[in-house]
């Protein structure tokens, strides 16, 4: 059965589309078109000698067998498994502490934790590169003063941890703010009721605050999944001081960049970028699915 819309409704609908138009234009021009173009690029192969040929999914097949690419994905996967939980737990604890209202200098602490997020990633990486420095960084100076060998933050085995530290430092405040704002929306009556029922502060935090934070936590996890897989600035900057530790395929994005600009292989680069996009989509989706299942079971 078709329902006929009244003229007023139709006018409203038209106005709706009109309001949407500016966004739709920018979205199409800046996101959809490049996306389609990249997809198109990724299906071709262009050689320095021999020109361009349509190769179907050959670039994707190559990437799936490319040890450098897979190692890069594995590396950012490790960041996801190690760094993200640490960062989010820290953010959660900080948000809870701030929300408890028992902290002196609350505003100052909130700002201090958030400020690193306001530092551009490139500056942050440069700054940490200096702090990690083996000769003149403060850690090295301290080690020297104590007469022990300075710790090598930029070695083969330690670099990933050092990068995770930078990322945590940069983003813990951002995630904290998201969680903290979510906490502020919890009605105070709930806490009062819980206290009357004899709940302690920890019990309130665990049984009321954390469940109330669920959507915010899910959001921060999704953002962090994306952030980890997209890791680029930090390794790219640290590469200049540890050029033989951070290889061209250290993270998938760095690899895509180097394929495009050092190897002049835009097509393969586009395929890598697409594959990375798929990986992110799959991981995000799996995460969503599991959290929803758990919510349904609960």
């Amino acid at each position: 059965m078709t329902r006929r819309q009244s003229p007023a409704r139709r006018r409203e609908a038209r106005a709706g589309y009109l309001f949407l138009l500016p966004f739709a234009v920018v979205f199409t021009a800046m996101l959809v078109v490049p996306l389609v173009y990249s997809a198109y690029l990724s299906l071709y192969r262009r050689q320095l000698v021999g020109g361009t040929a349509f190769v179907g999914l050959a670039n994707y097949a190559r990437a799936l067998k490319d040890q450098e690419f897979l190692a890069g994905v594995g590396r950012v996967g490790l960041v996801l498994l190690v760094q993200v939980p640490v960062m989010l737990v820290l953010a959660l604890v900080l948000a809870l502490v701030l929300d408890s209202g028992r902290l002196h200098l609350k505003r100052f602490v909130r700002l201090a934790v958030f400020v690193p997020y306001a530092v551009p990633a490139v500056i942050a990486a440069l700054m940490w590169g200096y702090l990690y420095g083996r000769d003149f960084g403060p850690f090295a100076q301290l080690a020297k003063a104590l007469g022990v060998a300075p710790f090598d933050f930029l070695g083969n085995g330690t670099m990933l941890g050092s990068i995770m530290n930078i990322v945590t430092w940069s983003f813990v405040g951002y995630n904290m703010i998201i969680m903290y704002s979510a906490l502020r929306t919890v009605p105070a009556e709930l806490y009062e009721a819980a206290r009357i029922d004899g709940a302690g502060e920890f019990q309130i935090a665990w049984s009321i605050k954390v469940p109330a934070l669920r959507p915010a936590i899910i959001l921060t996890v999704i953002f962090s999944v994306i952030g980890s897989f997209q890791l680029f600035n930090e390794p790219s900057i640290l590469r200049s001081i540890a050029p033989n530790v951070i290889t061209r395929g250290y993270t998938p994005n760095l690899y895509a960049y180097n394929q495009a600009f050092a190897a002049q292989d835009m097509n393969y680069s586009a395929a890598i970028a697409f594959l990375l996009g798929f990986v992110i989509m799959i991981v995000s989706y799996v995460f969503q699915l599991t959290t929803r299942r758990k919510a349904a079971a609960a």
Partner: peptide, 16 residues
Amino acid sequence: AALLALGLGACSSPSS
């Protein structure tokens, strides 16, 4: 996320 990932690759044409 996918779009961000792709930004890098979208700088060139495959045309000869």
